[in-house]
């Protein structure tokens, strides 16, 4: 069975929802503690949402130097699938596994809503079960979700098909080019501000579009073995 590590930092909030989503997708969630320097042999890692280390200094800035992140960075650079959700996306940017940074929403308020997104590429580990140009609804809830990067980086991301998700029906936070999520050049590391782990069941969400993130991982890992 696929084993997916979910890191818990002090201040993580959505680690249990992420574990539950992994379980609902038919994989085994493996809790990983921030102070551990082992990934426990997992097949993939999720950095969940929340406010790691109280968002002190900058969102994700201190979490990025936790012992477990040293292992995550090595594994990601070796091709392991890594998904950063919200605070996890901020950690990935601080760790330079993804380019750019997330700053405070231009609207200066915390934004919480069911957000329409367009899937811009299925050429990543975490979106291969979607179709390109699929329109989906995923929960968005953050105060610092404005994606920024220098113009050359944006040009490269757009040119190399590394923008994975784009906001539809209005930009909620001032992100450059309506960017909601991006990937690295190998497509194994994906970060996004919306929370797919909350869109798994009809009882608690207006869509179950989050399921395909996790089925994408399963599909990718099956293809590796096959």
């Amino acid at each position: 069975m696929t084993r997916v590590g979910v890191v818990t930092f002090p201040g993580s909030l959505d680690d249990h929802d992420a574990q539950r989503a992994v379980r609902l997708a038919g994989a085994e969630p493996v809790p990983l503690w921030h102070a551990s320097d082992s990934l426990d042999g997992v097949d993939a890692v999720i950095l969940p949402g929340g406010f790691s280390y109280g968002d002190y200094l900058r969102c994700g800035a201190i979490a990025r130097f936790s012992p477990v992140m040293g292992e995550v960075i090595n594994a990601a650079n070796a091709g392991m699938p890594v998904l950063g959700i919200c605070n996890g996306f901020q950690v990935l940017c601080e760790a330079h596994l993804l380019p750019g940074a997330l700053i405070r929403n231009d609207v200066r308020t915390f934004v919480c809503r069911d957000q329409r997104l367009r899937v811009e590429t299925r050429d990543t580990v975490w979106t291969c079960d979607f179709n390109t140009a699929d329109e989906i609804t995923i929960v968005l809830k953050n105060g610092e979700g404005g994606y920024v990067a220098d113009p050359e980086t944006i040009k490269r991301l757009e040119g190399e098909n590394q923008v994975v998700f784009r906001y539809l029906d209005g930009n909620p936070n001032g992100s450059v080019n309506d960017i909601a999520g991006i990937t690295n050049d190998r497509g194994n590391v994906v970060g996004l501000m919306p929370h797919p782990e909350h869109n798994m069941e009809e009882l608690t969400a207006p869509s179950t579009d989050g399921r395909k993130f996790f089925s994408s991982l399963q599909r990718y890992l099956r293809a590796l073995v096959g």
Partner: peptide
């Protein structure tokens, strides 16, 4: 300091 080209929502609010 935030770079000049980076939006500074806190500064804007102040």
């Amino acid at each position: 300091m935030p770079k000049p080209e980076i939006l500074d929502p806190q500064g804007k609010a102040v």
